[in-house]
Write a protein that binds this DNA or RNA. Structure first.
Lengths: 140, 140, 140, 140
DNA sequence: GTGGTCTAGACCACC
DNA sequence: GTGGTCTAGACCACG
């Protein structure tokens, strides 16, 4: 999956533990967060992306469907898949925040239990979020 | 699963879509992060916890096994399951940090894509981590 | 478990003191080392292999799971179990080498303590490794 | 467990995955291979070693028993545990060689499957065996 | 009484 | 059809 400029945005690892459709979803979410994809950006057709990755197009379909369920993607028969929202499209739904907080709690607990200090965890998070922000600047 | 003081530490929802053994793992990790469980703390025997939750002991076994794989639990034939480390047991393995950071990237991307600002995300993380810290204070 | 050519690759002894799922893991590892199984080779479905061996499919599952944990097997819902790597799939992870060396130290110490000389031990190792290499040649 | 010279020979890690009695056995075998312990060398009494390690003396007993089963240790009520043989006490029993070769096959297969080449494996084995030999020189 | 192993059989989700 | 999950119940080794 490539950008107009030629930079490859998305890659998946067929040998990874995590299912391919899940990887696809994750990479698209990250691309939206980093600004590489924005509200209204078109995504490749499922078949095009499937041949691109050398995977079954049902797998791509499933990944897209996950994104649709999360209100990040709109899928039309004629216009294909279009990014439905990005970081600048307004505040999140309250139920999303609740669900996300629960999942964040588990993830942060894992870091804490393994010995990362409060400040180390926050530093990592800051670094990740800053990287998103900088990419957004660039892509404007 | 209860503490000496009588407070229930861990609960599991058999109707959730996330597997029971996974929930068990998550709750134990959170209990370690919050200080409710510490290095050396004994966990209930698989059979005892199973009857406690009204689930099969194999399910408990699988959850405990996940924690063992993550080096958070030691399982002995005689002494049962014992917490192997907590937040004060020293720094994490480098591989863990790398893996955790990758997972955190995806989770933070999700928040960003849905419209949470950098500061909002950091505030939520701070709140969660502070709650862990305060619980640890209490349990001293 | 058989090959196309008809040769039986894997056998398991239900009366051994070593657990069946462990035997299964060991035999698969040896089959990969000898070239009988290669990167991409499909393994029988858990249920099929179970009836083949006259054992329960949960036991096969556990053996397959061990191989998955060691990054030797990929398990998909649709394509079943597939060998993830073999001797020609690139160098090992450093952690693996460290862990393996520790285990090899104990095993070689055992031979030395029982009176096998340095050269005798190396000869046995050479013979085993050569047998692996020859099988790989044949299966090309 | 210490030598006359003061050097600690044996240490066990209570937090390891591998059972303590197994670690004890492994360390004793390695000590014999390296020449730190020789035919006739006395081992500490089970109770002394147990208090030394801060473990149950039954655990030490079990470790010693494994060594007795392998004809490496003789246990008398009055004279305590004595090393029964070392690398210079003559050739091994044929059945030991057969059993050892089978276990070595599995271990070497693991290395091969993970990508270590024949020569790399042999180099590691040579290094380990050389380290044993050099220690034996020193301890003469 | 503990965990470890194995069997048997059920239902689910996915493709 | 596949694997994933859960339940139920059995026997063993260990301590």
């Amino acid at each position: 999956m490539e950008q107009k400029g030629g930079g490859v945005i998305i890659e998946v690892d067929p040998n990874s533990e995590v299912p391919i459709y899940q990887q696809l979803r994750d990479r698209v979410v990250e691309a939206i967060a980093s600004g590489a994809l924005r509200e209204g950006s078109p995504l490749p057709s499922t078949r095009a992306l499937a041949t691109d990755f050398g995977i079954n197009f049902h797998t791509v379909n499933k990944g897209y469907d996950l994104l649709r369920q999360q209100r990040l993607l709109r899928i039309n028969r004629k216009s294909g898949a279009v990014v439905l929202r990005d970081g600048n499209s307004g505040p999140p739904a309250p139920e999303f925040v609740a669900d996300w907080t629960a999942r964040a709690t588990t993830l942060l607990a894992e870091a804490t239990a393994h010995g990362l200090s409060r400040e180390e965890v926050l530093d990592i998070c800051r670094t990740i979020l800053t990287a998103f922000g900088e990419s957004q600047e660039e892509s404007r």
